[in-house]
Design a protein around this nucleic acid. Structure first.
Lengths: 213, 213
DNA sequence: TCAAGACATGTCAAACTCTACATGCAACTT
DNA sequence: AAGTTGCATGTAGAGTTTGACATGTCTTGA
């Protein structure tokens, strides 16, 4: 039920088309949720059917702009205040770290390097957003407006990305030290010192060894 | 394809039953991935079918313990080094923050308080894990073993939880100040000062006003 | 003027995930 | 001896998500 509410929530800020929403899911709310257009268009149809949104404008190339209705606003508020969030978060990138001991140190290092790069880029992007918001906000800040909350939300993103960037850099150092210690000047290509727990070899049906005293 | 690889990765560390895996997804790797037993058992059957795992022991109550095969290890390594991670992460809890401007400040505050509580609990849990690992590790640390990587992985979790806990506490303060400034001693129950963008009222089919000069 | 690229909407099938249903054993407590 | 809880495996159906297919418009630059 989250996509539905995400769409309603985004439309509360301003009327948008399915295309706009798709881009929002790739940009502003990426990192929190994602959805492709093939999911969004049917959802918009359902929401309109239910009277939670309404088409309020048409644009070039068949563009359809939807706005939230009173019922839609009530719905999204109800969701926010009356339901418990699903606090399970999912991140394949993080899960992979659990398994990095299975690969060559150089591969693990490379993985961490890319993670660092990724978080660095995200951080830069969010900091730019924050700078924009801080500038906009120069006059009397609106009291309880989306812009104020955007800043608070972006702050979460910034802190999150910064933390994971720092962690990745720290982990890279750990791997470097580990490799230096382990190799001790020698050139060793071994992947894992302590091998994973494998199943014993399959029982052979016939044994080539003849039973010869 | 992530559940499949998650299962293989976990079995690389030690042989486990479907039940064990289910608990792992609720505990150690929760926060990175989740899966219920109804997903895990069919997956184990498929993996065995493909020869990536093998049943190596039976236990009480029909317990079946699976181990990784050589092919399974090759598969999970291949996945780790040769495929790009899906870096989209998903968190309903974070997404909700984007929409908190839609609800009463007291409700937003309450939401943040619960988030803080949640992250605090996770942090405590991970710090206990870290302490255990640090103790275990007291002697000569194994060079490239799962335990060493567990510590690195747990470190990511700790930093992540700490960051989000601190953010939630900071955001709570922001809301408190905002409310104090906005209410300025008066008792006001208004939800949003700047209303969301709603669709204009539906066009009525007949107009009660007669067209009278 | 023509081609490429961004804008824009939609459908469908396959894969994945969740909830509920279903069953039974083993250990511990009363 | 009976009841409760935790261990343990499985299936079915509904809902969610992805990736591929499909189509057409508008703008910009060569």
């Amino acid at each position: 039920m989250s996509l539905r509410n995400a769409v309603l929530g985004l439309l509360a800020e301003r009327p948008m088309s399915g295309y706009d929403l798709t881009r929002h899911f790739d940009e502003s709310v990426a990192g929190a949720w994602s959805a492709s257009h093939s999911q969004i268009y049917p959802e918009l149809a359902r929401l309109q059917e239910e009277g939670l949104i309404r088409k309020t404008a048409d644009g070039p190339r068949g563009r359809k702009v939807y706005s939230l209705t009173e019922e839609g606003l009530a719905e999204v508020r109800q969701w926010l205040v009356a339901t418990e969030p699903d606090r399970n978060s999912r991140s394949e990138a993080y899960m992979r770290v659990f398994f990095l001991w299975l690969v060559e140190p150089t591969d693990a290092y490379e993985y961490l390097r890319r993670q660092a790069e990724f978080h660095e880029a995200n951080l830069a992007h969010l900091e730019a957003q924050a700078a924009d918001l801080d500038e906009e906000d120069s006059g009397e800040a609106p009291l309880w407006a989306p812009a104020r909350w955007s800043r608070i939300t972006v702050e979460a993103g910034i802190r999150h990305e910064r933390t994971l960037l720092e962690w990745a850099l720290w982990a890279m150092e750990e791997v470097r030290h580990e490799v230096a210690r382990g190799r001790r000047g020698a050139v060793r290509g071994a992947a894992t010192v302590e091998p994973p727990h494998l199943a014993p070899p399959e029982v052979r049906v016939r044994r080539p060894r003849r039973n010869r005293a």
